[in-house]
Every structure is written in C-alpha cells, then in structure tokens.
C-alpha cells in the first residue's frame, strides 16, 4: 500500500487559516489501512481543527467526507455537489488523491493534510515499512523476494557493503541490513550460488529516471 503520515497540526492549521469553509476529504484505501487519512482520521482532524479555532474565538466550517478512492476520477466526482459551498479542500489522501482533486476542481485550492511516505507493508500492528520503490523492472526473483533497491540504504545491487554489522545497517541499529536478509534467504532456498553472479548496472529508465511514467492498456483504454 501507499503509506502516509499526518502532517504536524501546526502546519495544517497554518495552511487552512485563510479559509472559512473547508471540505476535509479522506480516502478509504491505503491511507485508511495505515491509519493516516481514513474516516476515523478525518473525524479526529476535523475535531482538532475545530477546537483550535474555537480557542481563538473563531469558527471554521468543516465538512467531512471520505471517498472510496481519491485517486479515481469516478469517486472524486462525488465532491462536485459540495464544491460551491467550500473555499478550499483539505485532503487526507496520498499525493495521488490530492492531485486528482486539483485536476478535477481547477478553481479550488487543495491542501495536503498528510505526508505521503512510501510503498510498504505492515510489519505488525501500527508499524509500516518500505518495501518497493517502483523501479519498473522487478528483480525480486533474483534476490530471494527481498528488494535491495527499496531496502538497502545505498541501493546496492551487489551488497552487502562493509558497514553491515550483526545483520543491521550502518546507518542505524534499527534498520535491517537487507543484504543479510537476502543472503539468509538465498541460503534457505539453496540458491547461494546466485550470490556471485554480478548484477549489472541498473537501467533506471523504467523508473523515475526516465521521466514521469504512464501505463496504457490498449484493451481497456477508451
């Protein structure tokens, strides 16, 4: 999923200050799962903002709404009936959702309420960790299903570097050395001999290096 974290309240408060009527929009997908911008978080943020302004004797009109999927025009359309009653949209979706609203409603400011972080998985309740960088040319088949691009601090395709200590990365004892994980896994799979194959320099064209990307499925595209 795409993970996100709520921005500091101070920053959100600052960004909505110029506006009187806010449409606070959550998303039912990834940000709900990572507890950053689903219906629950929308409610809590609305309440926090409300109290913040009440404290100063001001009022703010906040309309709460959570869409099925904020990165999809079909659902973003649902906001159209509210748009003429608000001054700005505060989105709790990932950057994709924010941009979809901006694209559809050209005359309304859209403000992000979360920082979009990474594509990750849930390690345990309340903990999410980065797993994929969307390089566009998956090599997980060669590395025992563990990605060195997303999970090695130096993106080494031929690791580990000289900083790997007790299975941890040199940047922090909290970070696993992904090459230790890869090696352990290759051993478990009986694929140790793979290790000495040199992985060639990566072609980053399939990733962000090639500019903004797009997928077109001819059979589906209208």
């Amino acid at each position: 999923m795409i993970t996100a974290e709520r921005k500091p309240l101070e920053e959100i408060i600052d960004s909505v200050k110029p506006f009187q009527r806010i449409l606070l929009v959550g998303c039912n997908e990834c940000v709900t799962v990572c507890a950053a911008g689903g219906r629950k978080e929308v409610g809590i943020l609305a309440s926090a903002l409300q109290m913040n302004f009440m404290k100063a004797g001001q009022t703010i009109d906040i309309k709460e709404l959570t869409l099925e999927r904020q990165c999809d025009p079909e659902y973003v359309e649902e906001l159209s009936t509210h748009m003429d009653q608000v001054d700005a949209v505060l989105s709790m979706a990932c950057g994709c959702g924010v941009q979809e609203i901006a694209r559809r409603y050209k005359d309304k400011p859209v403000l992000p309420a979360v920082n979009t972080k990474f594509m990750g998985a849930s390690e345990r309740q309340g903990v999410w960790a980065e797993r994929c960088q969307g390089c566009g040319d998956c090599l997980l088949g060669l590395t025992g299903g563990i990605c060195p691009i997303a999970r090695c601090s130096k993106r080494l395709l031929n690791g580990p570097c000289g900083g790997s200590t007790n299975g941890k990365c040199e940047i922090s004892p909290e970070v696993d050395c992904v090459w230790q994980l890869i090696w352990d896994r290759l051993k478990a799979l009986g694929m140790e001999d793979r290790y000495e194959d040199i992985m060639p320099a990566k072609n980053w064209q399939t990733g962000r290096g090639g500019g903004p990307r797009k997928i077109i499925r001819e059979d589906l595209a209208e």
Binding site: P160, C161, T165, Q180, W183, E196
Partner: peptide, 17 residues
C-alpha cells in the same frame, strides 16, 4: 574489502565478485 563486516561467510565471495 572489509573482512570484518557481516556476514563473514560472504566476505571472500564478495572479494571474488
């Protein structure tokens, strides 16, 4: 080459690479 980093068993293999 760092013979002292972990995992030690990979350190010769890494030099070979």
């Amino acid at each position: 080459a760092n013979p002292f980093a972990d995992p030690f068993e990979l350190r010769v293999a890494r030099l070979a690479k």
